[in-house]
Nucleic acid binder design. Structure first.
Length: 678
DNA sequence: TTACCTCGAGCTCA
DNA sequence: CTCGAGGTAA
């Protein structure tokens, strides 16, 4: 801040002083949870700094606290790959499960008692925020764990997220934590929304999620989010000594101005876990934020490392969830839904009930036997909850509330959509409509599947449009889609000129495809995306595939008798062959190549299993490289596995590989094999 | 499964 | 303004 910029020394000094004060008070407020000045006093410091920076623009720097909302709106969020994957935690829903977690940890470590760092499990959104040389660099959502969305501009607007980490900042630090909306901020936001005549948010989590997904950071800033750090991803502590415990890690983060919850503590043994869990549960309603359980982590980081990971979750941590909220409601009706394969699923239509943060109106009853087992009748009052993750579940009936006229559910003999008779094979739980594609419900599902993103990828072909197309009898089979034009579409709801043209263009575009997509799009039972790829590769052309008899189908990897049967049946059907012929006449085409059986690709027939994080290859990339050479990547280790490729933090698959005596490769070994032989 | 955001485009009413 | 589609998150 030199005098050469024409800024009076006094002003520069005052600005520096103000920034330090603001950061200090932010720290006291968010990290220590012990403010020493009032909000009004804080605001006045802030305004003074703003005024100074306005007067002397040379004073304003990118990491000034006044510059949280800097960026202009973006049009899309970029994708960020997590250098260290953002895993999820194993869940426990009972004290017993928590007990077996502790037992397992003790056994694996060979100790009598373990120290745990424990904290509330926030109900918010997981993010990773990377600081380089102490400056906030990138922040991203968890996404699928491997990559998420770049929401840096929005995270910068959160006052609890420091823009700089101060003098002790390590060279590189990715902090992991949860973005949440405090209950009081949620109340305030909803009051403001009501005042503006806008719709309110259902719960703080959704409000926070919505705020973070705003393209314009100004909106995010107005929504008041906060942040709690609970761990780290990629990190280089530089000259500083790395922390040795989870507790020390959080203290280190706090010393870097990153807020961790004050509700955390270190406890000893199972007894410590239990008393913490029950103490927090008792205070749950009076906390400033929503939580859905507590998290236990082995405190000693060396012990954490020894415990390692199983599949996608650490063995050293556990999320002990509170029991799912349960509410009584009424069964208004039990309807039957028809799926793409004709499967009939009974669904309970419920009197809307707010449970676990959302309004539940439907709950699947899975199948006839399930309805019997729970003895759910129409008119019953039932207990519903949102199970484990998200799917609403009818827990049980309250028999004392059963009205006299409560009707039992009977699986209809005729399909409710098309009247074809319903069949249930003796050894199957599901009943099916026998109508096949005569059934409009199945036709609709088939069309939706055909146009799906992983199939023919016809943009704009959604549920409502398909409903209309089928109901108006404009489309009976996928082949009919290719006869549509702007005129035939005219007259349908929400299908004026522009929309119609877009749909026609999307359909036209789908004419150029791949054999694998096409085979998947046909919707042959048991043929998913993977099998479709295998079949396309193996036969190379559709005619080969259609002509294949069972023995040759069985030669395809992963194709067993059930799949082979199903494929044969599908192509034996004259109707299906007709549709395919018409699709081809309509101009649907794909490159056909020579069949790639066995010997093609040096790794043909060689099965790999990947575990852990490879240094420079993502899981997808490694898989692709192996498959390109004809190899196969399986999800779990068996005696058919040829090699296990292990990276950092391998899971139990490595143990199993060792147990079965299967050779283990690292990334270098894998590359050598791919190149050497290929 | 539900809730939310965003986009394009259709619908409605002044 | 409202709707449908497509995406994300838990």
């Amino acid at each position: 801040m030199g005098a050469e910029s024409g800024v009076p020394r006094k002003a520069a000094e005052r600005a520096g002083r103000l920034r330090a004060l603001i950061e200090e008070h932010n720290h006291r407020y968010y990290v220590l949870d012990a403010p020493t000045i009032s909000d009004a006093e804080f605001d006045s410091l802030f305004r003074e700094l703003e005024a100074l920076e306005r007067e002397y623009p040379a004073l304003a720097s990118a990491d000034s606290p006044t510059r949280r909302v800097g960026d202009a709106p973006v049009t899309t969020f970029e994708t960020v790959t997590h250098r260290v994957p953002m895993l999820s935690l194993n869940n426990a829903f009972s004290d017993e499960e928590a007990e077996s977690f502790d037992r397992r940890v003790r056994e694996l470590l060979g100790v009598d008692e373990v120290d745990y760092e424990v904290e509330p499990k926030f109900d918010g959104l997981a993010v990773g925020i990377t600081y380089r040389q102490g400056a906030l660099n990138v922040g991203a959502t968890r996404g699928d764990g491997a990559s998420g969305e770049d929401v840096t501009a929005n995270l910068r607007t959160i006052n609890a997220v420091p823009l700089t980490l101060g003098a002790k900042a390590p060279p590189l630090l990715e902090v992991r934590g949860e973005v949440v909306m405090l209950r009081r901020d949620f109340e305030r936001l909803n009051a403001a929304q009501t005042a503006k005549g806008e719709r309110t948010f259902v719960n703080p989590r959704n409000a926070a999620a919505g705020a973070l997904r705003q393209l314009d950071p100004k909106v995010t800033a107005s929504r008041r989010l906060t942040f709690f750090a609970y761990g780290v991803g990629e990190v280089d502590w530089g000259a500083a000594k790395p922390p040795a415990t989870q507790e020390a890690l959080l203290e280190r983060l706090e010393s870097l101005r990153l807020p961790a919850t004050r509700e955390r503590k270190v406890v000893r043994g199972l007894k410590g876990l239990m008393s913490y869990y029950h103490a927090i549960a008792a205070r749950r309603a009076s906390l400033a934020f929503d939580i859905d359980g507590v998290v236990y982590k082995v405190n000693d980081l060396a012990q954490q490392e020894r415990l390692g990971f199983v599949s996608r979750a650490p063995r050293f941590a556990l999320a002990h969830k509170f029991p799912a909220e349960e509410m009584p409601t009424e069964v208004l009706a039990i309807e039957v839904q028809v799926g793409r394969t004709g499967a009939l699923t009974p669904v309970a239509r419920l009197k809307p009930v707010f449970v676990g943060g959302v309004t539940v109106t439907n709950a699947t009853l899975h199948n006839e036997d399930e309805v019997r087992r729970k003895d759910v009748r129409i008119g019953d009052t039932v207990i519903v909850r949102r199970a484990g993750d998200v799917i609403p579940e009818v827990v049980r009936v309250l028999p004392e509330k059963r009205p006299r006229g409560a009707r039992e559910f009977v699986m209809p003999k005729k399909c409710p959509e098309c009247g074809s008779h319903v069949v249930r094979l003796p050894d199957e739980a599901v009943a099916r409509c026998s109508g096949g594609l005569v059934c409009p419900a199945q036709r609709k599902q088939a069309l939706l599947h055909f146009g799906g993103r992983r199939a023919m990828d016809i943009e704009g072909l959604g549920e409502k449009l398909v409903d209309q197309l089928v109901d108006a009898e404009l489309v009976r089979t996928p082949a009919d889609l290719y006869k549509l034009n702007v005129d035939t579409l005219a007259g349908l709801e929400r299908m004026a000129e522009k929309s119609a043209a877009n749909v026609v263009a999307a359909i036209d575009k789908s004419r150029e495809t791949t054999l694998a997509r096409f085979v998947f799009a046909l919707g042959i039972r048991h043929v998913g995306e993977e099998s479709a790829k295998d079949l396309a590769r193996h036969f190379g052309s559709l005619d080969e595939l259609m002509a294949a008899h069972e023995p040759s189908l069985l030669e395809v990897r992963d194709v067993g008798p059930v799949l082979a049967q199903s494929i044969r049946q599908f192509f034996a059907e004259a109707h299906n062959r007709g549709v395919i012929a018409r699709l081809r006449t309509a101009g649907v085409h794909w490159p056909e190549g020579a069949p790639q059986r066995e010997a093609r690709g040096k790794l043909a027939g060689v099965t790999f299993v990947l575990t852990g994080t490879l240094p420079s290859l993502s899981r997808e990339e490694a898989k692709e490289m192996i498959e390109k050479r004809g190899g196969k990547v399986a999800g779990s280790v068996s005696k058919n596995t040829a090699y296990v490729v292990a990276g950092a933090e391998p899971g139990s698959k490595l143990d199993r590989a060792e147990a079965l005596g299967i050779p283990v490769l690292d990334e270098r070994g894998l590359r050598a094999m791919l190149q050497g032989k290929g």
